[in-house]
Structure formats: C-alpha cells, structure tokens
C-alpha cells in the first residue's frame, strides 16, 4: 500500500515537473512561432533598417537595438567602478560595523521595486538633468543609464562579494603574512584571483540591464532614433515591445515586436551561455 502511494506521489511530482518544463518550452515555441513568418517573408529587410516611422511605413528596429546596447553598456560601465569601490570598502573594513551596514544597504536595494527607482528618478533626477545641461526634456540616455546603473549595482556587488568570500580564507592569511595592506591585498591578490567572479557579476548585471523595461520606458524618452549624444532620447527593444503593444497598431508593427522580443531573448541567452561557460571553467579549476 505504501509502495502504491509512493508510486502515485512520484508520478505526481513528475507531472508537475513536466508542466514546468512544458511551460518553458511553450514560451520558446510561441515566441519562435510568431516571429517565424518574418524569416521567410521579405519583411525582414524592412525590419532591419534604421528608420522607425509606422505612419510612413518604416518599421526598422535597428535604432532600438542600438539603444538597448548603448544603454546597457553605459549603465554597466557606470556601475562597474562603483561596485569595485564598494567591494573594496567591504573587504578592507571587514568585520567592522560600517561594512556590515553597507552590505545591509546593498541588500535593501535589491528589495526595492524597479518601478520605484524609475518613479523617484522622474522627480529628483530628471529636473536637474534638464537644468544642468539645458537641453531636451531631461528624459535621455544619461538619465536612464544613471538609474539603471543604480538598479544593477547591488547585483554586481553581491555576486562579486560572494566570490570574494569564497576565495577568501587562506588567500587572505597568505597575503596578510606578506605584509600587504588591506587595500593592496584587495587590488593585487583578491581581485586577480576572483577576476572570473567579477566577469560573472558584470555579465549578470549586464543581463539585468538588457532585460529591464521599466527604467528606459520611464526615463529614456522613447524616441526611436540614433542618439547623437548622451543627452538624446533613445528607445530600447524592451520599451519598444511595451510601447507598441500598448497602442494597438497594424500587423507590421506587431511583427517588429516579436522580432524585438526574439532579439532580446537571443542576446540574453547568448550572454547567459557565456556566463555558464565561464562558471563551468571556474568550477573545474577549483576541483
């Protein structure tokens, strides 16, 4: 009797697992299914052009792609030195109240909703930007990148910090015995030995930046154009998806949405695969 129950439970668990996996595959399938017609029609060339103007029949999504790349690279580049500085601070002041407080702040940051970062930025970042640079409405690449950098900062810090703690221990004792100051330990011993961790952290942060829709939607201005400066408005792929679906338009615009979705997905999958590869290499190294 027990065995029979055991069997049923096992089958039940398996069914649930299959449902989860099926959902994942359904996601992939539907996304491919709806962007498939694109690949076999002449519309592809139209989509991969530099002009977006649905009223005149131009449906190019390349500006959005450029916007996504620019914004995510810029925000990662901004977050990177800050994250390094914060990790250095936590390392050099380890076991002190200050570093624990800083870690707590970083943890708290992860729990703050994205939409709140965007909302507050609209009121305390946009007006100064408008005033200082005296150009445009303040909704621009730079504003979005600053906020997005703040959003991905905790991810980078926490992942890198985890790697540092993992590498820690004996390495710290050795470098301490060599007479290095904490800052030198961090720069010349910990940083090189956890460099792969740093790369993983940056990749994760970058992925978050690429995938995020709310910050660019709220702060980047959403003009589908090629920006000439940091103060120009841009539109990202993620924001494009949201914007087009929010305003019902013609079928060609829909197609651009699926193309954008697919592009986003492929970009993130590629970067994730890269991270996986790096991680596996590091694991085998540790063994």
């Amino acid at each position: 009797m027990t065995l029979r129950r055991e069997w049923w439970i096992q089958k039940g668990l398996l069914a649930a697992t299959l449902t989860s996996v099926a959902a994942i595959f359904l996601l992939l399938f539907l996304l491919l299914y709806f962007s498939f017609p694109l690949l076999f029609s002449g519309d592809l060339k139209q989509l991969f052009s530099w002009r977006w103007n649905p009223f005149e029949g131009h449906y190019g999504i390349l500006p959005m792609m450029l916007g996504t790349l620019l914004l995510s690279i810029l925000s990662t580049v901004m977050a990177f030195p800050a994250a390094l500085g914060i990790c250095a601070f936590i390392y050099t002041h380890r076991n002190s109240c200050l570093s624990r407080l800083l870690l707590l702040v970083v943890h708290v940051m992860t729990s703050i909703p994205t939409v709140i970062y965007g909302f507050v930025s609209v009121f305390i970042l946009v007006p100064p930007m408008r005033r200082i640079f005296a150009a445009g409405a303040g909704f621009c690449l730079l504003t979005a990148a600053l906020t997005l950098g703040l959003l991905i900062l905790p991810t980078i810090v926490l992942v890198f910090h985890a790697y540092l703690t993992q590498a820690g221990g004996s390495l710290r004792a050795v470098s301490e015995s060599l007479g290095l100051t904490p800052m030198e330990q961090f720069c010349f011993v910990m940083l090189p030995s956890a460099s792969r961790g740093l790369v993983s952290a940056l990749i994760l942060g970058f992925c978050r930046a690429v995938g995020d829709a709310m910050i660019p939607l709220m702060l980047a201005g959403n003009a589908a154009q090629i920006p000439a400066s940091f103060l120009d408005s841009i539109r990202t792929l993620s924001a494009h998806v949201a914007l087009v679906l929010a305003t019902d338009s013609q079928s060609m615009a829909y197609q651009s949405v699926f193309a954008s979705g697919l592009l986003l997905f492929v970009m993130i999958a590629m970067v994730t695969a890269l991270a996986h590869h790096l991680n596996r290499n590091m694991l085998s190294r540790c063994r």
Partner: peptide, 19 residues
C-alpha cells in the same frame, strides 16, 4: 531550461502572455 527561464526578462514573459 530553468536557467534560461530565470534569465528571461519580464517583458518577454509579458510578450509570452500576449502571444
């Protein structure tokens, strides 16, 4: 598969619902 799902941005999850 779970990793891929975890990395999927939420806007794509929304797009999935739409499809």
């Amino acid at each position: 598969a779970v990793d891929i799902l975890a990395g999927t941005p939420s806007i794509i999850m929304g797009l999935f619902g739409f499809t």
